[in-house]
């Protein structure tokens, strides 16, 4: 399934090869392979327990794979002399000592790689945390912790950035900021891996998506290809008299559904053909619009059998 990277790509890549991670009897990540391309935002999707966070931890060497390996531009991450300039990661916004100030947290991380204090102030500014730099992290909201984690991830100005659920807890302004920030990182030629449960976020930000389910890669494709392959292209039709058209389309083998607002949703017949039928019936056509599968629909269709923790509809009375 893994595809060899095209040779004309010059940027720095992360390659995961046959990663497998077991926790006791449970296989959290099962033979996962992918390539993260420079200049690309890759959305990392999957139900809870699919193995996304474990995979991301393996990318930076925090978890050791039982099988397989990760290469950052052809070398193991740990062999770099300045790892923070290679890969920056926000894996858990709460992974900070709450009794330490934001500035001290960033200063100690920067000190490990010999990054200047000026850069610490820069990333505090960039993430809007300067006014809170001297406050202890324990008093931060989740959104502020996310910003601190993002500040830490870009401290070394790395070419690859891994963000695990970065918009959790962010206010709308923060979400918008993350979206444009992530796109600007990719525009600079950086590699971005963005894990999120928010489909709208991924669909607006990512170029490519990798979907995990029960520890395995279910899909790895450009987002447009992924949506196309989800199929179920439908056409929404609003017309002066839906009944005769529905009857005719049905007779021709199309699947026709009448929606709540009186419009028809047609599958299996091209739009031009529908228009011709409408004209033949002398009906006024008010709308004829293709409806593509949303990322959410495509994702749910793909992961339907890969959900490990499934909720059930709530009942009013026990």
């Amino acid at each position: 399934m893994i595809l060899p990277p095209p040779v004309f790509r010059l940027g720095r890549m992360i390659t995961a090869e046959h990663l497998t991670k077991r926790f006791g009897a449970k296989t959290a990540v099962d033979d996962v392979s992918f390539v993260l391309q420079p200049g690309t935002v890759t959305g990392f999707l999957g139900p809870n327990g699919a193995g996304k966070s474990t995979t991301m931890r393996m990318l930076v060497g925090l978890d050791r794979p039982d099988e397989g390996r990760v290469q950052v531009n052809g070398r193991p991450f740990a062999t770099y002399t300045a790892p923070m300039t290679e890969v920056g990661a926000l894996l858990d916004a709460s992974a900070v000592n709450p009794r330490r100030t934001a500035r001290a947290h960033l200063r100690l991380l920067a000190a490990t790689n010999g990054i200047s204090r000026t850069r610490v102030d820069e990333v505090l500014d960039l993430t809007g945390l300067s006014p809170a730099a001297r406050r202890r992290v324990g008093g931060f909201s989740l959104g502020m912790r996310q910003r601190l984690g993002i500040a830490a991830s870009i401290l070394g100005d790395p070419h690859t950035i891994l963000l695990d659920e970065p918009v959790n807890g962010l206010d709308p302004e923060g979400v918008l900021w993350i979206r444009s920030f992530v796109r600007s990182l990719a525009a600079e030629g950086r590699t971005v891996l963005l894990s999120s449960h928010l489909m709208s976020e991924v669909s607006q930000t990512a170029d490519r998506i990798i979907v995990l389910g029960r520890g395995r890669v279910l899909a790895d494709a450009p987002i447009t290809d992924f949506l196309e392959s989800a199929g179920r292209d439908r056409i929404r039709v609003r017309i002066s008299d839906p009944a005769p058209l529905a009857e005719r389309l049905h007779a021709e083998g199309g699947s026709v559904t009448t929606l709540d607002d009186g419009a028809l949703e047609v599958e299996g017949i091209p739009a031009a053909r529908i228009a011709r039928h409408a004209a033949a019936l002398d009906l006024d056509l008010h709308e004829l619009s293709p409806q593509r599968a949303s990322l959410e629909e495509a994702y749910l269709a793909l992961t339907d059998t890969a959900v490990e923790y499934r909720s059930h509809p709530a009942t009013a009375a026990a």
């Binding site: 399934m1 893994i2 595809l3 095209p6 004309f8 790509r9 010059l10 940027g11 720095r12 391309q37 420079p38 200049g39 690309t40 935002v41 002399t81 300045a82 923070m84 300039t85 290679e86 790689n113 010999g114 990054i115 200047s116 850069r119 401290l155 070394g156 100005d157 790395p158 070419h159 990719a186 600079e188 030629g189 950086r190 170029d207 490519r208 890669v217 279910l218 899909a219 790895d220 494709a221 450009p222 987002i223 447009t224 290809d225 992924f226 392959s229 989800a230 495509a298 269709a301 793909l302």
Partner: peptide, 28 residues
């Protein structure tokens, strides 16, 4: 969609992406 995989991406297909280099100065 199971085992669905295609090469390339809108942002990078056929494009030459210059490698990004960290601007933070000598770090080690």
């Amino acid at each position: 969609l199971s085992s669905f995989s295609t090469p390339g991406s809108p942002a990078t297909s056929g494009a030459v992406v210059p490698p990004y280099r960290s601007q933070v100065g000598p770090a080690r």
